[in-house]
């Protein structure tokens, strides 16, 4: 699996399904975290991940990776998929019907279940609380808070995800922080990450 995202993506555009599977394997966790932080529901986030990758495959001719990660683009697809969730689920209904949802009640030991359920609820609660703190923000500001502060995505990557300039991300973040501070609710950044660490984490 030494291939770069860019190499794998080029394979995808020639119709190579296995390369697509390798990219899924590489980015599913990050996309899942982002989806969870967007919709606040574990179940919906699992579905949204599938819709995101189905849409990514569908749109694969549109992307030309400029640098060596397709994650920002995938997060952009996820952002749109989340906005069109109702329509997207219908479009992919036959796929989603076959989709297994992880159910902590199946398989494994009792104690593990309790733990899995608890940590899942923890994650959902944490995300919902974070999302509540963003109630006073406009959509653009919320986008950068979710991407940069909740998901640790760098500002350049966030700009590519949202299709705006890095300067716009910076100013939105600045405004969002001011508003959150005024409400005394500045969310703790997940990790202080710059672009290089984000990329290092992906590889």
């Amino acid at each position: 699996m030494g291939e770069t995202d860019e190499e794998l993506w080029r394979e995808c555009t020639t119709g190579n399904a296995d390369a697509f599977g390798a990219l899924f394997d590489r980015h599913a966790d990050a996309v899942f975290r982002y989806c969870l932080s967007r919709c606040g529901s574990w179940h919906d986030a699992e579905e949204l991940v599938s819709i995101t990758f189905l849409e990514a495959w569908r749109q694969r001719d549109r992307l030309r990776p400029e640098r060596d990660t397709v994650l920002p683009w995938l997060l952009g697809v996820a952002t749109n998929a989340n906005r069109n969730r109702a329509r997207g689920s219908r479009r992919h209904a036959d796929f989603l019907a076959r989709l297994p949802h992880s159910d902590p009640r199946h398989g494994g030991h009792e104690a593990d279940h309790a733990e899995a359920v608890a940590s899942r609820l923890d994650a959902e609660r944490a995300v919902r609380e974070l999302l509540e703190t963003t109630a006073g923000l406009n959509d653009g500001e919320r986008d950068v808070v979710v991407l940069c502060l909740m998901n640790g995505i760098g500002q350049d990557e966030a700009a590519r995800t949202l299709g705006v300039r890095t300067g716009t991300v910076k100013s939105r973040l600045h405004r969002a922080r001011a508003k959150l501070a005024a409400m005394n609710r500045d969310p703790e950044p997940v990790e202080q990450l710059d672009t290089t660490t984000v990329e290092a984490r992906l590889s």
């Binding site: 399904a17 599977g21 899924f24 899942f32 599938s50 944490a126």
Partner: peptide, 30 residues
């Protein structure tokens, strides 16, 4: 609770990956 520790559940991940690859293989040029 730190969001960065959350991962896509392994069992779902494997199965979704498989379904996606099948889907991509089935309709590579739809």
């Amino acid at each position: 609770m730190n969001l960065s520790e959350v991962t896509y559940p392994k069992d779902t991940k494997y199965r979704v990956q498989n379904l996606l690859v099948q889907e991509a293989r089935r309709k590579p040029n739809l």
